[in-house]
Design a protein around this nucleic acid. Structure first.
Lengths: 354, 354
DNA sequence: ATCCGTCAAGCAACCGATTTCTTGACGCGT
DNA sequence: ACGCGTCAAGAAATCGGTTGCTTGACGGAT
């Protein structure tokens, strides 16, 4: 890891910095060659102390800032990390982007944010852009695991880390959570609280995460010898609202509810309120995802949280390991989930679990 | 270490190099000069039809993609737009970023997202990076209007659009809302509903938006001959929660509440719920900002919405006008606010909406 | 004393597209 | 016929760092 001088230039003294000072200008000022200036600036250890000082003071005095565009061309890569998500408005992703941005910044990198709105075409266009831009690496939550451009990306030597959703290309790294376990934990918690009629508000069953979360619920119910009861919410608030409204009209009304993501939870809460159903007295709820508003709604929401910050840290580490050539083999990290018990699930069997 | 296969075959050999098809390769394939290829690709009209076709088919056949890094160096600028906000997790900004991203994408640009966490140092570092990267333009919501680097940015010919918060440099464009009016509208709505004891949960009074929103409330109250009643929430959920809890203990308990942003609204709702205060029966609430969860809490929240999408569109237009040299003089756009009446403010005047 | 290895520093060839400046061809007016 | 303007296309000079290769100096080994 080479020290980058651009980190240390933060003097605001002469805010009137004339642009267009090149490395050779610095070189002639310091009476050395451009090559030596370059080496000093990139922390090459083979430069004598005297020269280093001469160069640094010339840099300082001229207020020189290396032209990154030239560097990029020569190196055939940038210091930018591409982050591709389906919807940055979803708290899950905005937290992820926030964390990734912070980590990248700490290492002197920038973040190119790409929003796919869940459309494969846009995803592909962005991935192609990333190849064109020679980004340093990509963290992505794909809408299309089999997307061939992902393979092209890896072929061109750009490391890829799948976030949340795995990709087909086996060379990519991945940071995911055990979605099956997430909904199983939620369901089991309600079971332990004595509920026997627990329904599941499912996401999109075309998406991996959607399927898995349903499976986890299914598993838990069947293990308890109970019949699953699923309504479709398509990972969207409105749909979930309608589906739950419908559900509440059915005769044996469920006493427990597991909701597969934060958007649908909003719709669900609204439906419950409209129907005059009290939480947790009439019905216990556990949601997957732990959005910022979860502790603040009434009653505070019990959630199965994904450790987004941790996942982001893992993703960045996997990425930079590849970039720095510290690793060749793909890795797959599965992060544990955390059940955050608040009031919405009722007070079944104590709040022992963390 | 990885891609050393790029050993150039500059010895005339000219065999098919799989990696890196350059413009001159296309040129020789099309039996024209690189200059002509470049012109065709950039839509220069002075190229004959026959040549255009030859070039395009060579491009097609070789699957040529221009090296953007080279283009960037030559042009001394990129196609990237910098977007700098204080907190991308705040729905207000994630909506803005989302909208900006979408607009940029439509015009073939990328978005570099910068999160300052409200720290001037990080903001400055990012602005310097943007200068180094020669971004096409910057949309920013500054934490420090007087930041000298903003001036440096403009000096280096990079257009700047202030978003939400104005900047000191008069050459920057701006897209803002009338914050004073926002809180005045909210307050007046409660006044019209017959409330006389309305309190205000204020944001940070060191920030422009914080001050203005307080002023608007103040104005409305005094105009009605009523005494203002302000508690400080510092734009944060927890602080607002504590402040409101305190407020509710006071003897003439207010019957109306105006909250200065979405985060504090969460804290406020929680405090109300804990105190067993019913909304809107015991107390009417109007919030500034219209976060996605507003229609879903109980009761649905009346909000003064900022037209974020519209603001983003304006910002992008202002920016691209500058980039394309269509305008020289700074412009300042003030967007109107929208009162979205839902249940939380009670049924004073006018009809309720979902 | 000669040679070789080592190390520091410089030279110059890149990276690949853009763009200015030329050149050459053609047409038309005098 | 000559000359000038117009237009299309090419040659070549950038843009500004980086880095492989070379040179020169110095010290130790032979």
């Amino acid at each position: 890891m080479l020290a980058d001088v651009s980190e240390t230039i933060s003097r605001d003294g002469g805010s009137k910095v004339p642009r267009g000072i090149t490395i050779s200008r610095v070189a002639s000022e310091a009476r050395v060659s451009p090559a030596t200036v370059s080496r000093v600036l990139n922390g090459d250890p083979r430069v004598g102390e005297e020269y280093r000082i001469r160069v640094m003071s010339a840099v300082e005095m001229l207020g020189y800032r290396p032209n990154r565009l030239a560097r990029n061309l020569r190196r055939q890569r940038t210091a930018t990390i591409g982050v591709l998500v389906s919807d940055i408005k979803n708290p899950h992703f905005s937290e992820a982007v926030h964390a990734l941005e912070r980590l990248a910044f700490g290492r002197g990198h920038q973040v190119l944010v790409c929003n796919t709105d869940e459309t494969p075409e846009k995803e592909r266009a962005y991935l192609e852009t990333m190849i064109d831009e020679r980004v340093l690496g990509v963290v992505l939550s794909t809408s299309n695991p089999g997307e061939p451009t992902i393979t092209t990306l890896i072929d061109s030597g750009i490391p890829v880390v799948a976030f949340d959703r795995e990709v087909a290309d086996p060379r990519a790294d991945a940071v995911i959570v055990d979605n099956i376990r997430a909904s199983r934990m939620a369901t089991e918690r309600l079971l332990a609280a004595g509920h026997t009629d627990i329904a599941f508000v499912s996401g999109r069953t075309e998406v991996e995460t959607g399927i898995e979360r349903m499976q986890g619920y299914d598993l838990a119910m069947r293990a308890a010898g109970l019949e699953p009861r699923v309504v479709l919410g398509g990972f969207r608030a409105e749909l979930a609202h309608d589906a739950v409204t419908e559900l509440l009209r059915e005769d044996p009304r469920p006493t427990g509810l597991v909701v597969a993501n934060n958007l649908m939870t909003l719709g669900t809460l609204r439906a419950l309120h409209e129907a005059g159903v009290r939480v947790p007295d009439d019905i216990g709820i556990i949601a997957i995802d732990d959005p910022p508003w979860a502790p603040f709604v009434s009653p505070p929401l019990t959630c199965v949280a994904q450790p987004v910050d941790r996942m982001a840290a893992d993703a960045m580490e996997l990425l930079l390991d590849r970039v720095d050539g510290r690793r060749d083999q793909p890795r797959r990290i599965v992060q544990p989930l955390e059940l955050r018990v608040r009031a919405s699930c009722g007070t079944g069997t104590g709040a022992a679990k963390t």
